[in-house]
Design a protein around this nucleic acid. Sequence first.
DNA 1: CACGGCCATATTGTACACAATCGTACGGGA
DNA 2: TCCCGTACGATTGTGTACAATATGGCCGTG
Lengths: 244, 244
Amino acid sequence: MDGPWRGMQEGDDDKRRPHGHAGEIAYAAIRDRLLRDEWPAGTRLLEADLAALTGVSRTPVRDALRRLSNEGFLDYVANAGCRVKAFTAKDVEAAFDLRVELESYAARRAASRAGTAQIAALSALCDRMEEIAADPEGEPRSRDQLTPLNQSFHAVIVEAADNPRLAPFLANVTSAPVVLRTYRSYTAEEIARSMGHHRELIQALQAGDADWAGAVMRSHIHAGYRAALRDTGLFGAVAENTQD
Amino acid sequence: MDGPWRGMQEGDDDKRRPHGHAGEIAYAAIRDRLLRDEWPAGTRLLEADLAALTGVSRTPVRDALRRLSNEGFLDYVANAGCRVKAFTAKDVEAAFDLRVELESYAARRAASRAGTAQIAALSALCDRMEEIAADPEGEPRSRDQLTPLNQSFHAVIVEAADNPRLAPFLANVTSAPVVLRTYRSYTAEEIARSMGHHRELIQALQAGDADWAGAVMRSHIHAGYRAALRDTGLFGAVAENTQD
DNA sequence: CACGGCCATATTGTACACAATCGTACGGGA
DNA sequence: TCCCGTACGATTGTGTACAATATGGCCGTG
């Protein structure tokens, strides 16, 4: 702890980091734990601890914390560090509301802009998802396989919307833990409906019908909101007992 | 360069800074110059120069640059510093599109939530703005007086919308220089129409009519977009000749 | 016993030093 | 003459030391 040691002592390989990626490492590591709910809401995160945890110094850790608080994961108070944000039912509503507006906008725009290649990509993603959903094996795991495919599906539509500011915005609003885990709380029926929405969306885009596409997307996100709401009681409770 | 000098040598008062605000100082200073178009699009910003300019060290300057690039003012490339973003017509469209969606959403929400105090505040702001607009004196300056009042007006509506994620989002999309300067390029007729929109908005909110409020806001922002478009040729040109 | 001020400590904010990386100019070779 | 490899300078990324601030416990006082 005293000399100019090679500052590595915790979980990491000693292969030389390619300079310019320590910040990414810290960011990814912390974000990952946040997504896994490793720390209960309200937990204070110390820069020094995180530095030791991720194997980099405080400087990139600070960068990561600023980013994460900007993305809504953390509450940051000047000169007092940051705490894991307590998600209330209201926050969940806020996030989904914004998603409804922005994603339905994306769908409307995409209706007049999506190319055949993008339509094909969406179709392929639907095929994969339906295949996985139909598989009666591995029930819990299929949910986790569905999630990234679903994200890709939405990403293609956002890309087709062709608004350079949109993607980063949506990334911020969809990165909330609650949003990311929606597929896990879906019932079998809700999953089937979600697949249906995807197919309908593709048809609307092919038809170039902006209103249709926007409306389907609106329903689609609303359905997700209802599912997420069922879990919110949990968050409210957690938020309360760790008020501190 | 050897001893623990008080690191002050450029434009600054030597009154002690209250620790925890150097970052803010750097951020405000750089953002201010960006808004004044002090640097043409494409200009590379060196951390060391900005540090000397603002009188703080590189560390808070880096924080400020990260924030500003997150807000869309700068393009940031790893290991290569950052450049002043070249705004294209497409970027302007993207920003206004997002504003239309988010602010009309805010207006819809506000219709069923705005309290009498907020309505009164909006009215007072309208009074002030109309007063200034009616004054035949100080033509160019009146525009600059209108802008902050207009921002306050929109801020009140966003606050009334009561979505905790909304305000930071909109701050990001409205902070683009083009958006901030719209009032300057308004014709007298457009200013009058803008005032009319504000009054109509208040009525819609009082009536609790979400559709009405949303529609008025949509027109309101669209009108601003048209005005901003008239200036975009300029930006395109600047963006091109500084490609580097 | 409660309350308020004070001190010790833990933690963040800032500055600076060094290491890694990128762009560029220069020189050698085809 | 043109191209490619190399070395150098300029600039960013990271680690670390120090300064400033907040927090919590302690003591004194009402």
